[in-house]
Design a protein around this nucleic acid. Structure first.
Lengths: 229, 229
DNA sequence: AATAAATATTGATATTTATCAATTTTGCTT
DNA sequence: AAGCAAAATTGATAAATATCAATATTTATT
């Protein structure tokens, strides 16, 4: 009798995800045929390099960011399993406009741009699901921009914590794979300030901190701080 | 003998634009059937209001922005004629996630979301042109985010001037319809700082200022300042 | 378990930017 | 063209954040 390995389980979930996007079996076979593993910290794509592939995250977690001259990146998205990466490169000039790095060992399916494009053109349901993803990405960027451009550090950090908790980890606790520096690059602040604001939030009993894990105790308070500006 | 009014001229350009996007004549008729005029300063859409329409700018100029609590907006895009506004609202929740205001008297075609969606679903060429627009919007937001999150005021202002000159007005001169406050909201800075940085750039002979019109004299210099961070 | 390397933390200080107030200039309306 | 309202400008000051340096803690490696 055959038993399922964790990997089989994951394959099944990936297929379910792709089915929900409207892909049929042959299409699913095509987009999942090339799978690559990345170690923690490894580059999944480099900003400025030739964008050959659209990527589907099958396992693990990634961060996407814009690189600055002085090694001060701006993270605009944390990616969780069963997400598509690189849609902004589907058309237009042929280069990645952002970098992407694995936060832990991760598996990614690579789909050639032309192949991906063909499927979109022949599958309306899939095309409109892809458009939904574009809309979500835009809305996420509006949120980030709003947070980073006109708020003070307390609000910025709260925004990042809310984003991580509600949108990414879907949990009260933020995984220790997220470093203080990640939160800094997500908030547009220096790492030292993150530490200080987290200490403040801890004193206010809004969060609890255990080593690198952050637990949100009072989401309402975070949201009030976020709104306050 | 019939003579063409400026309006006829503009109609023709709009039709050309829509043809290039792959729309056929009946489809063009549908999307251009409802046309609304906005005065300078009038709201084209309000952040948070119900998003009934996708909009096509036929004449005039608009600014799109995210509203903050304390009246400090963040402009993320200036829109020129023959652009589509509101794509991020095509699916997803039914509200505008940004505000949009006319910078001068403007004419906008309103297309019901469902109608727009139908055309996309039945017209592959149009769908992929729309996806290109999504990609461009994302890339524009990456640029804005990078500028606003980790740069200093000089670089931020240079980024805004480069954006306005190259991407929007496609000219060495930036139209006086753009106020100092607009540049401030585009750069994520206070208006007073814009004035100071512009004075600095003027001294450096990078720009010339005549009342509200800004002429770029040395684009290379602006780009160096932009890169410097 | 010991060690090394990476990350986090803390305090002091320097920079940068925002804010406030006063004034000038520009654009608009009649 | 006069007068008014909006926008731009300037200088002084306050507030926020970044930077730097030193130390502690955590994680990874052997």
């Amino acid at each position: 009798m055959k038993t399922f390995s964790p990997d089989d389980e994951n394959n099944k979930k990936l297929v379910d995800f792709l089915k929900k996007l409207g892909l049929n079996s042959p299409e699913i076979k095509i987009v999942t045929s090339t799978e690559i593993e990345f170690k923690k910290g490894e580059n999944v794509c480099k900003q400025g390099s030739f964008a050959s592939y659209i990527m589907i995250l099958k396992e693990g977690w990634l961060k996407s960011y814009i690189e600055n001259i002085h090694f001060k990146n701006t993270i605009f998205k944390i990616t969780k399993p069963f997400s598509i990466i690189g849609l902004s490169c589907l058309y237009g000039d042929n280069h990645y406009h952002f970098g992407c790095q694995a936060l832990m060992p991760s598996k990614v399916c690579l789909v050639e741009r032309a192949v991906f494009d063909n499927i979109i053109k022949g599958n309306n349901k899939f095309a409109s699901e892809i458009i939904k993803m574009y809309s979500n990405s835009l809305q996420n960027l509006y949120d980030r921009l709003n947070s980073i451009s006109n708020k003070q550090s307390l609000s910025k950090v709260c925004d990042s914590l809310i984003y991580l908790s509600e949108k990414i980890f879907e949990s009260d606790t933020i995984s220790p794979i997220i470093t203080r520096r990640d939160i800094a690059e997500l908030s547009g602040l220096a790492t030292e300030n993150i530490v200080r604001v987290l200490a403040e939030l801890k004193t206010a009993n809004a969060i609890a901190v255990d080593k690198k894990e952050i637990a949100i105790l009072d989401m309402d308070m975070l949201k009030r701080f976020s709104c306050f500006g």
